[in-house]
Structures are given as structure tokens and as C-alpha cells.
């Protein structure tokens, strides 16, 4: 493996060739905000939060392999504004009632909003008409909160590598659905894993929730990504 050198916000970094930019930055103690990215799984580049400027062009850091001599902008006012706008769009596009959500405090969308210090979205709330599907014995799907990151599709598979989840419908009506022939095989462990990979509260294990007190939840005290930045 050959080593490549690149620059993020003026800081010289090194990584192995072929590594994705997002991971490479994190190895160098630089946090690039991300939402749909899930470590260990194929990147998808759907949420666009990880947008950076590579030699002046916008690229998603999770899907861009690092190359020698790349000059990358990450934490600039322009990029912060782009990311903030995307987060606000994601927030108004669904029904994110944080005060009543089981995931509040541990939610990655909320954590990014906190990190970017968003006081209120600039866009009007859409209040889309969406359902809750509680038909499965182990898992509850709340479409109001889904941000279509495809993490569950990528991560929750059976022993043959077949996904339990898939996209159904088109355009703004897209929703996550479970393969009806595989429903019975979704064990409690897999349901637990599905809840963990979901960045928001769209997939929840049944009969579980609100078990961590306020003040002790993941993003109550420290911003998302701070563990990467302090490791530097």
C-alpha cells in the first residue's frame, strides 16, 4: 500500500491510497460531518452532509477516494452553510417531533443540528402525511422520521447477504419496507442492530425506549465528532 499526502484546511495529512476521504480525515483527527455514512459498509453519498471542496469542487467525502496532492476545504463558512441548509431541509421534510421521540439525545440528525448550532430551520415545515408501521413483533417503523439514508438496507442482511429492507415507491413517496418473505427471520438481535444503525428514530425495537436519562445520552454533553477531534 502506498501512502498519499493531502491537505485539509491547511493541515497536512497522510493516508493509505484508496482510502475514502471521510475515513482518511478522521484518521488524521479531522472530523468531516456525516449522516448516511456507516463505518464498515459501502458508502452511499446520499445525505450530502459530508460535502467538502476538493481542489475547489464540491465532492462527498464519504465516496471520494483520497489522492496525492488533494487540497481540501472542510470547515469553512461556505461549507458550514451548505451543510446547515441540508440539515434544515432534512428536518422540515419529515415530522421530527424531538420532544416526543425515543431517539432524542441519541439521534444523529439532531446531533448534527446541535453541532451546527441551528436555532430554527429557514425553510417552512412540510408536515408530510406519513404512517407508523407497528405490525412486526420486534420492530417499529416510523416513516415520519426516516431520512432515507439506506443504512438499514446496507447493514441488516441475512446469512446469504440478502437485505431485509428495501426502498418502496418513488420520488417523495419513497419509504423503507421490509421484505415480507423475510419478516419472520428478523430476530430480536437483528432488530436491535437495525435500531442502532438507524441514525434517527425511524426504526425502533418494540417495548424499549427512554431508558437513558436526560443528561446521560450520547450527545447531551459533547457534540458529535468531538471524540475524533480530541483524539488528535
Amino acid at each position: 500500500m502506498s501512502v498519499v499526502k493531502f491537505i485539509i484546511d491547511g493541515v497536512e495529512c497522510i493516508a493509505e491510497k484508496g482510502e475514502y476521504l471521510l475515513q482518511a480525515a478522521r484518521q488524521n483527527g479531522i472530523y468531516i460531518p456525516s449522516l448516511c455514512h456507516l463505518e464498515g459498509y459501502k458508502p452511499r453519498g446520499s445525505c450530502r452532509i459530508c460535502n467538502v471542496k476538493v481542489n475547489g469542487r464540491l465532492m462527498t467525502a464519504c465516496t471520494t477516494p483520497v489522492a496525492d496532492g488533494m487540497d481540501i476545504e472542510n470547515d469553512t463558512p461556505e461549507l458550514r452553510d451548505i451543510r446547515t441548509a441540508i440539515l434544515e431541509i432534512l428536518f422540515v421534510e419529515g415530522n421530527h417531533f424531538c420532544p416526543a421521540c425515543e431517539r432524542s439525545g441519541n439521534c444523529e440528525l439532531q446531533a448534527q443540528i446541535y453541532r451546527h448550532q441551528i436555532m430554527a430551520p429557514r425553510f417552512p415545515f412540510q408536515f408530510p402525511d406519513r404512517d407508523v408501521d407497528a405490525s412486526h413483533p420486534n420492530i417499529l417503523k416510523d416513516y415520519n422520521r426516516c431520512i432515507l439514508c439506506k443504512r438499514c438496507i446496507r447493514a441488516i442482511k441475512d446469512e446469504n447477504g440478502k437485505s431485509f429492507f428495501a426502498f418502496k415507491k418513488r420520488s417523495h413517496k419513497v419509504e423503507i419496507s421490509m421484505d415480507p418473505t423475510m419478516k419472520e427471520n428478523l430476530t430480536e438481535e437483528l432488530a436491535q442492530r437495525a435500531m442502532e444503525v438507524c441514525p434517527v428514530g425511524a426504526l425502533l425495537r418494540k417495548e424499549k425506549g427512554y431508558d437513558t436519562p436526560i443528561g446521560k445520552r450520547k450527545y447531551d454533553k459533547q457534540p458529535i465528532g468531538s471524540e475524533i477531534e480530541t483524539a488528535k
Binding site: 417531533f97 424531538c98 420532544p99 416526543a100 430554527a120 415545515f125 408536515f127 408530510p128 402525511d129 406519513r130
Partner: peptide
């Protein structure tokens, strides 16, 4: 100044919006 989720996004009363 808007104070709180309900003022900013409707909050729990807005659960009736659909």
C-alpha cells in the same frame, strides 16, 4: 423571540396536522 419547540415548529399540538 420564539421560545420553545411549539412556537418554532408547532410542537406536540402539530401532531394533529395530518
Amino acid at each position: 423571540i420564539l421560545v420553545g419547540e411549539c412556537a418554532i415548529m408547532g410542537g406536540l399540538p402539530a401532531l394533529r396536522n395530518n
